[in-house]
Write a protein that binds this DNA or RNA. Structure first.
Length: 453
RNA sequence: GGAUAGGUGGCAGAGACGUUAUGCGUGGGACUGCAGAUCCCAUUUACUAGGGUUCAAAUCCCUACCUAUCCUCCA
C-alpha cells in the first residue's frame, strides 16, 4: 500500500505481505470524555492497520495513553479529585468508546506512567549528548543544536517570541525549546529522577515509549493533524537527536480534523459531541461508515444528516449481504473479480476508503438487483463483502440468533398462507412476533425476505 | 501576519488532462391488504473568479477571493 508522507509529500510504499511493520499512533490525554474527533482518527487507523493485516502484513500497533499531564492535574484540582484516579476513570471511558466502534487492532496500549523509567533513560541519553539544560521549573530540550528542526512544520524562532509573557520559560535559550521533565509543584503526582522530583513532559512520553518498544526504527507514525506542531515536531527532534538518523520513522501520516458547522470540534470551543452521545443513537458500524466515508487525511464536517445517510447505506449493504443466501444454481452472474480489483486498487492508493465504500455500494446494488445470484457469484460476493468488512467494519453481520433459519422460513410460509386467505390480522401477528425476536420481514417483488435487526 | 491544506451539482464526497464517480435529498412512476424494502425515470454540460499552457483542462501554471487547521492546550 502507498501512503502520503507528510514530511516529504511523497507516496511511500509500506511493507508488504509477510513483512513486519511497526506502527505508532498518538493516543489521547485522558482528562475528559472522548469526542467524535478522537473517534474519527482512531477509526481511520484501526481500519488501516486491519487492512494491512488482511493483506498479510504483520503489524505491531502501539498507542500511548497520556495519563499524567497538566490538563489532568488541573481538572483534578477543579473537581477536588486525585489526578491518577481521574485519569483512570477517563481511560476506562476511552476504552468504552473504542469498544463501541470496534477498534480492537491495537497490539499494545502504553501508559505514560508505566514508562517513567524509559522516559528518564531517554532524557539521560539526551543529556549525555548535551541536548538538555536545566531551568528552575524543569529540564529542557535544546532545539538549536538540531540542524534539521522544522521538517514537519517549520516555525521561525523570531516569530515565536512575539507576545510571550515574562515567565520562567523566558529563560529558555530558544523559544522553541520544550520541557522534557517538569519539576513537582505542591500536591502534584511525581516521580524521582536524577534532576529532581517531577513528571515527564508530553513530547518525550511518546518517543520514549516508541523507541523503548520498537528499538531502532519504526515504519509509521500517525496522529490527528492538530498534533503536527509542536508535538510531532518535538518528537521528531528528540528521535533525530538520539538516533542521528533522520529516518527513525519511515512515514508520518495525519488524519484530517473533524469539524462541526465549519469549525474544529474541540473542548475549548465547546462544540464537541461525545462518543457517548453518538453511541446512544447509532451503531458502531454506522459510525465507522460515516467516518470512513471520507479520506482519512481530509477534513470532514460532522452532521447528523451524515449519520442518517450512514444508517441507510449500511442497512442497504446488509440487505445485499443477506440476499446472497438465496443463491441458486441458475441465478444471475456477476463479475465479482472486477469489483474486488476496484476495491483493492482504491485502498492500495493512499487508503482511499471513500472509493472503497462506493465500490461496496455498487456491488450491493448489483446483488440486490439481480438476486438470487448463481451459487458461484454469490459465494465470491459474500467472500468479498466479508473480507472488506474485516477492516471496514461497516456491515452489521450478527451471529445467528436463537431462532433457527428453518423456523423462520416455516413461519414465513405460514404467514404467506394466511395472507392468501386474506387473514391479515393473523398474518400481521406472525410478522410482529418475529419482529419481537429481532427478525424483520420484507415483502419484495419476488416474495418475502427477512433480516436480523 | 506566517506556515499548511482546501474550494466539485440542493447536500456529503471521489476523480487529477480526453470516457456515467458514488451516495443522500427532491420530483414522478412501478410493486403493495398494510408496513417496509426494492426497482425504474428525472434532477437533461457540478467543478470559486479571472487569465494562461494545450488539439483537449475540474484536472497543469499564474493572479485574486473565500474557508479551515496550526503558530507551544488539542486526535
Amino acid at each position: 500500500m502507498k501512503i502520503k508522507d507528510e514530511i516529504t509529500g511523497n507516496m511511500n510504499e509500506l511493507p508488504g505481505s509477510g513483512q513486519v511493520m511497526k506502527v505508532y499512533v498518538c493516543g489521547p490525554t485522558v482528562y475528559d470524555s472522548p469526542h467524535l474527533g478522537h473517534l474519527r482518527t482512531y477509526v481511520a487507523f484501526d481500519a488501516m492497520v486491519k487492512y494491512l493485516r488482511h493483506r498479510g502484513v504483520e503489524v505491531f500497533y502501539v498507542q500511548n495513553i497520556t495519563d499524567i499531564d497538566d490538563k489532568i492535574i488541573n481538572r483534578a484540582l477543579e473537581l477536588k479529585e486525585d489526578p491518577m484516579e481521574l485519569s483512570r476513570q477517563y481511560t476506562e471511558k476511552y476504552m468504552d468508546a473504542m469498544k463501541y466502534a470496534g477498534i480492537n487492532s491495537i497490539s499494545l496500549y502504553a501508559k505514560a506512567t508505566t514508562h517513567i523509567k524509559d522516559i528518564i533513560n531517554q532524557i539521560k541519553r539526551l543529556e549525555k549528548k548535551e541536548y538538555t539544560y536545566k531551568l528552575p521549573d524543569g529540564v529542557y530540550f535544546r532545539v538549536w543544536m538540531l540542524k534539521n528542526y522544522g521538517r514537519l512544520r517549520s516555525q521561525e524562532a523570531s516569530q515565536q517570541k512575539q507576545g510571550t509573557r515574562a515567565t520562567v520559560s523566558d529563560l529558555k535559550e530558544d523559544p522553541r525549546d520544550f520541557a522534557l521533565w517538569k519539576f513537582r509543584k505542591d500536591g502534584e503526582p511525581s516521580w524521582r529522577s536524577p534532576w529532581g522530583e517531577g513528571r515527564p513532559g508530553w513530547h518525550v512520553e511518546d518517543t520514549a515509549i516508541a523507541l523503548s518498544i520498537f528499538g531502532r526504527k519504526f515504519h509509521l507514525h500517525g496522529a490527528g493533524r492538530d498534533l503536527v506542531f509542536p508535538h510531532n515536531e518535538a518528537e521528531l527532534s528528540i528521535m533525530t537527536a538520539l538516533k542521528n538518523d533522520p529516518e527513525v520513522c519511515g512515514s508520518w501520516i495525519y488524519t484530517g480534523i473533524l469539524k462541526i458547522n465549519g469549525e474544529k470540534m474541540s473542548k475549548s470551543l465547546k462544540n464537541f459531541i461525545s462518543v457517548e452521545e453518538l453511541m446512544e443513537k447509532y451503531s458502531g458500524e454506522e459510525s465507522r461508515y460515516a467516518f470512513l466515508s471520507s479520506n482519512y487525511s481530509s477534513e470532514m464536517d460532522f452532521s447528523w444528516e451524515m449519520m442518517e445517510e450512514a444508517r441507510k447505506n449500511t442497512s442497504y449493504i446488509q440487505t445485499a449481504y443477506l440476499r446472497l443466501a438465496e443463491s441458486k444454481e441458475k441465478g444471475a452472474k456477476i463479475d465479482i473479480t472486477a469489483f474486488r480489483k476496484q476495491l483493492y486498487d482504491a485502498l492500495e492508493a493512499d487508503f482511499n476508503t471513500r472509493e472503497a465504500i462506493s465500490v461496496i455500494m455498487q456491488l450491493s446494488r448489483e446483488i440486490i438487483k439481480n438476486a438470487p445470484l448463481e451459487n458461484g457469484s454469490a459465494m465470491k460476493a459474500a467472500k468479498l463483502l466479508k473480507d472488506a468488512n474485516t477492516f471496514l467494519g461497516i456491515i452489521p453481520i450478527r451471529e445467528a440468533g436463537e431462532i433457527k433459519d428453518s423456523t423462520i422460513n416455516s413461519l414465513i410460509r405460514l404467514r404467506e398462507d394466511l395472507r392468501n386467505k386474506k387473514m391479515f390480522k393473523e398474518s400481521d401477528s406472525v410478522r410482529n412476533a418475529l419482529k419481537d425476536s429481532g427478525i424483520i420481514l420484507e415483502d419484495g417483488v419476488n416474495g418475502t425476505t427477512w433480516k436480523r435487526e
